[in-house]
Amino acid sequence: MARKITYQQAINEALDQEMSRDPSVIVMGEDNAGGEGSPGEMDAWGGVLGVTKGLYHKHPGRVLDTPISESAFIGAAIGAACNGLRPVAELMFVDFMGVCFDQIFNQAAKFRYMFGGKAETPVVIRTMYGAGFRAAAQHSQCLYSLFTHVPGLKVVVPSNPYDAKGLLIESIRDNDPVIFFENKVLYTMEGEVPEEIYTVPFGEAAILREGDDVTIVALGRMVNMAQEAAEALQKDGIHCEIIDPRTTSPLDEETILESVEKTGRLVVVDEANPRCSMASDIAGLVVRKAFGALKAPIEQVTAPHVPPPFSDVLEDLYVPNAAKIERAVTRVAEYR
């Protein structure tokens, strides 16, 4: 039985191991250690939820706490990446992208192309996303589709501890700007994670369950809900194939299309809002490239087109869940 650690520990271990292996890797963000200039303990937090805890003392001088100046430090991480470092900057909540987006989408994303292929920007921007903490409209969004829209960015959305570690190491070693999305609800999820260093490549979806009846493509936290739904559906004789793209840019189109060619039925599960989303993107892909295979209309299980609400009853209605996925799969499976 392999070692089990949490999603959060897996991310910490990936940072620790890559910092140990490669002196050009640095970490920066708001309170990534915590306590700078304050009278109490240093490394008081290790990030707002403790993900980077311990790195400050293990790697002296290479964990930089920043002022609350996202535009400045995210931009600085990008600049440092242009000059030989491999910074991992933390944008605490992805909702804060608004105060630094220019540096990401106009600067980092475009250097390579604008400069005629002569630039490399090996920066990683780690960021938390997702509902479930009753953290309301400005701390709960799933904005990966906005970043996926921008050419030049790679976008990673790990759904489990194993992938979180391997994809983060891959992100750090990758020579393009990578936006690494961490679901805050998944931080406590446990899973088998090798102690050794390993990578998980970009653009290769994981097939988490094989089945012939309905393809479910799910992202991030939704992958677990899809698995729960698929287990229940199997008792009704509906066999689902679950695909976790793992990265939305690049997107493993082939695995999705191959599966739909087999099943002819697709449900896309995405915690984000439905318009111009990964759900609509994947649905569009399948309509364009596997139209002939489709035996039923594609269903999307997403949050509604509203901001994340605060009250627990509303937030629970807002986020997709296994029951909603089951209903969508059943509709798709029964469509004739």
Partner: peptide
């Protein structure tokens, strides 16, 4: 199986 392939890939991706 899917699991066999995944386990092998996990091995092959170790540094």
């Amino acid at each position: 199986t899917r699991q066999l392939i995944d386990d092998m890939l996990k091995y092959k991706r170790l540094d």
